Simulated assay, not measured.
Amino acid sequence: MNYKKLKLFGALIFLGCVNSAVLAQNVKESSNYPNRPIKIINPLAAGGAVDTMARLLAPALQDALGQPIIIESKPGAGGTIGSNFVAKSPPDGYTILMVYDTFAVNPHVYKNLPFDSFKDLTPVTELVKIPLLVVAGNKLPANNLRELADLSKTKSGGINYSSGGAGSSGHLAAELLKSNLGIDMTHVPYKGGGPALTATIAGETDITILGAVITVPQIKGGNLKALAVLGKKRTPALPQVATASEQGLTNFDVSSWVGVLVPAGTPTPIVEKINAAFSQALKNPTVQARMAEQGNEIVASSSAQFGAFLGQESAKWAKVIKENNIQLE
């Protein structure tokens, strides 16, 4: 064997040893996972749908994984700051991203994202689908969509609405709603659903469109009133509230969702453990009771199913934005 062949043979042996060592390390880390506290990053404001969902699931997740669950909010830029933080985190399963529907829209809103939503993060599971509600402050003289449309023509300054940020489901749904009603409304974006909800309760904005997970408690508490459900069917949490379709907007169907991702490169066994833990948490009787109260639909999808769903959501909203000429801030 000549020198060149011997050198190549040695290099191949070295690479094989390195790959074996890396594989062995990944297997060891996967088998030991988790052995320290796990952080869930909420990329939106505290008090919104994601934060509420994370805090509801945390005790059951802690039981399933056997480690403390720490919830940390990193809001800003429609959720892209927190998402970028997780995308740049070590792919070891100890930093988990919980996202709202804005995640699938952001690539169409922010043209220079510091990460690739579909390459730098690995889908884990879609947790739930959440009905969207049009809600108003109690002093607004409108109790349904037709009355809202009539009010928009007489109210000084017109109707304004708050949202959890540009590109959120509430923003896009409101733009579709005003197009279908033939009215104009002014968008007032906030950094998350919590602040948007507070603004409407306080009368700073006329209406908002947000998920049942945070609106239903405020409606039942007498702080807000519901004008419509925007999904295909009424929500069991508020059976008296008619859908937009029932109020004359044929086939109007917009809902929200919450899902979980981890940094790309996270070993598959760890992704599967996280998926199984969330699935177990969603079967907890206390969690299921709260979900039913809020009208949420438990999904608990696989990683592959959630990945396919994200692609469909991205394509759907890209089309809606283009066809309706929606201007995003």
Rank of each mutant, 00 (worst) to 15 (best):
V287C: 02
P263E: 02
S301G: 04
V271P: 06
A237D: 00
I298G: 05
R234I: 09
A304S: 14
V262D: 09
L238I: 10
P236D: 03
R234H: 07
V229G: 08
G221H: 01
I274N: 08
S301Q: 08
L238T: 08
N275C: 05
S303D: 01
L227T: 03
P236H: 01
V262C: 06
G295P: 04
P263Q: 03
L230N: 01
A292H: 11
E272P: 03
D253W: 10
A300P: 07
N223I: 02
G221E: 01
P269C: 13
K225C: 00
Q294T: 11
Q247Y: 14
G295M: 03
V258A: 15
A264P: 07
I214L: 02
A244I: 06
N284V: 01
S303N: 08
V241T: 05
P285L: 09
N223T: 07
A276L: 10
S279G: 13
P236E: 02
L224H: 11
N275G: 08
V260T: 11
L227Q: 10
A264N: 08
D253S: 14
A300N: 10
E272C: 06
V229M: 10
G222Y: 11
P285W: 03
L249Q: 10
I219K: 02
A228S: 15
G259N: 13
G222K: 09
S301T: 08
L227S: 09
T266Q: 07
G222Q: 02
R234M: 12
S301C: 05
S303M: 04
P239C: 07
K283L: 11
L261D: 15
Q305W: 01
L227Y: 12
Q218D: 13
P217M: 09
K220I: 01
S255E: 14
F278E: 10
T266D: 01
K283E: 15
T268F: 11
P267A: 05
L261Y: 14
K233W: 08
A244H: 03
R234A: 09
T268H: 09
K283F: 05
A281C: 05
G295K: 00
A242K: 15
T243M: 07
R290H: 10
A237S: 12
S279T: 09
N275S: 13
N251W: 01
A276D: 11
L224F: 09
N223M: 13
S245A: 14
L261H: 14
L238P: 00
S255W: 15
I274P: 03
T286E: 05
E246I: 06
N296Y: 13
A289R: 15
K225T: 00
S301M: 04
V271Y: 06
T250D: 13
P267H: 03
P285G: 06
F278A: 04
Q294P: 02
K225W: 03
V216P: 06
A289S: 14
A304F: 04
I214D: 05
M291S: 12
A289I: 03
A281I: 02
P267L: 05
F252L: 12
V254H: 07
P236N: 00
A300R: 00
G222C: 05
S302Q: 11
A300V: 00
L230G: 00
T250W: 07
G231A: 13
L238H: 03
Q240L: 07
T243F: 05
A277I: 06
N296R: 07
V254D: 01
I274V: 13
A292W: 03
L227A: 11
P236M: 01
V260A: 06
